[in-house]
Amino acid sequence: MLLPDAPAATSPRELSLSGGHDKSGAAEKAALVFRVGEITALLGPTGSGKSRLLSDIESLADGDTPSRRRLAIDGRAPSDDERFALQGRLVAQITQNMNFVLDMGVLDFLTAHAESRAVPDAGAAARRVFDAANELAGEPFVAQSQLTQLSGGQSRALMIADTALLSTSPVLLIDEIENAGVDKRQALALLLKSEKIIVMATHDPVLALSAHRRLVFENGAVRHILNRSEAENAALARLAGMEDELARVRAALRVGGTIE
């Protein structure tokens, strides 16, 4: 039998989730809106509902998940055909997964990925991802390396560069990028350039303040929605400066330097 052929996926500019309830059945205060080019940080203790929100987006929630949220794309609920087309294509994810499992060389793999995207010059596209990954990774690796032999940091650098440069999914979900063993702010800057809707679960204060908006979770629902204030801009600059100082000291100590 022949199932309906999926039409080409659209590229939404805005997602919203409304109608949510917390674990006690109380309604979420407001609709949650996510836009292209903006970073939204999700904050809250383990079990407070961050992962639920990520999977509500991924599964195109239609009142059918425990949170009872409904997803709207560009202001309206997707039709059955659109849901069908978007299933599995709406969202790219960078999870806490640190290892590859496929038995392929790095450049062969990237070329295969570029080919699957029908990129005009797959070889050149693969090389761009490889170079960007090497800039992010602490220790460089070569194009012939086996994926499975990369270190945790190298693997994450490659996953991040690949998602930023080759993925066509309009939404990017990031889970605790601070544990990646790569330069987190450089990684975020690279991902932001990819013109996606970015939603990031994090426990890191600098990353949380880097986001345009923060959603704070409690008991399975969003309790506070906070936009970054002027005072927080100044705090962010101060904290980022401290991180730079730490990075400088770390780099110096690693090569046998002394600190004045």
Binding site: V101, H113, D162
Partner: peptide
């Protein structure tokens, strides 16, 4: 799919296709 990266999922999907 939760055990592999986004890129691996996409390459694998392409091979299936």
């Amino acid at each position: 799919g939760d055990l592999v990266s986004q890129a691996e999922r996409e390459v694998y999907r392409h091979r299936i296709r």
